[in-house]
């Protein structure tokens, strides 16, 4: 699903955000991406959706080398990936329903299909009763779930979540985690960047740890830190 070899990203200001990362994430995997702030987690996710270009090294997603991906192919590459952004990225002037249906409309899903799919995904995240409410009227956890609904409504092969439990209380965090596990169970590969020690330690999934852009640990059933 994701294959990197000596993947390096140096921003134009000289910051080395990723430094010779080599790893493989297989189809159906569930992987936590951990590390201190500035370790390069978001950079890694941004490279995968081709918001950024690798400086050197190989990055292949779905057997496609992202370094040689044409501009015109980028939208189609992104359609196979769902992303939950740390800052939600919801449109304030669209309702919950519209925020989710938007993701289907822009990829030209037949209108007849859109309604069913949006309602079923809203049901999955437990927001059916808030479908016609604007994001500003939702709690942080609810907005997070709208963001998740939008990410999965297109049934992506790969789901990237950048701190989807940031700023959430423990209960809501666990609700989100249950959803991610459920989505993973249905066959979607999940990569989640997080600072949430409790969740990582409890779920015992694969842990990929970064520090200053370097891969410092890749454990199959790891904890948040090595001591665990």
């Amino acid at each position: 699903m994701i294959l990197t070899k000596d993947l390096t990203k140096i921003y134009s200001n000289g910051v080395v955000a990723l430094d010779h990362i080599s790893l493989t994430i297989n189809k159906g995997d569930f992987a936590f991406l951990v590390g201190p702030s500035g370790a390069g987690k978001s950079t890694f996710l941004n490279l995968i959706i081709r918001r950024e270009l690798p400086t050197s090294g190989l990055l292949a997603v779905n057997q496609r080398n992202l370094a040689t991906l044409k501009q015109s192919e980028i939208p189609f590459h992104r359609r196979s990936i769902g992303v939950v952004f740390q800052d939600f990225k919801l449109l304030p002037r669209k309702t919950v329903y519209e925020n989710v249906s938007f993701a289907l409309e822009v990829i030209e899903t037949p209108p007849k299909e859109i309604k069913d799919r949006v309602y079923s995904v809203l049901e999955l995240v437990g927001l059916l009763n808030k479908a016609h409410v604007f994001p500003s009227e939702l709690s942080g956890g609810e907005q997070q779930r709208v963001s998740l609904a939008r990410a999965i409504v297109n049934r992506p092969l790969l789901l990237l979540a950048d701190e989807p439990t940031g700023n959430l209380d423990p209960d809501t965090s666990w609700e989100i985690m249950d959803l991610l596990k459920e989505i993973n169970k249905r066959g979607t590969t999940v990569v989640m960047a997080t600072h949430n020690r409790e969740i990582v330690d409890h779920l015992r999934k694969r842990v990929i740890a970064l520090e200053h852009g370097k891969l410092v640990r890749d454990a199959p059933k790891g904890g948040y830190t090595l001591e665990n």
């Binding site: 992104r78 359609r79 822009v106």
Partner: peptide, 14 residues
């Protein structure tokens, strides 16, 4: 809105 459209896979023409 444009940024999000592009992130969820809208083509430039769209």
């Amino acid at each position: 809105e444009i940024e999000i459209m592009k992130l969820v896979g809208a083509t430039n023409a769209f």
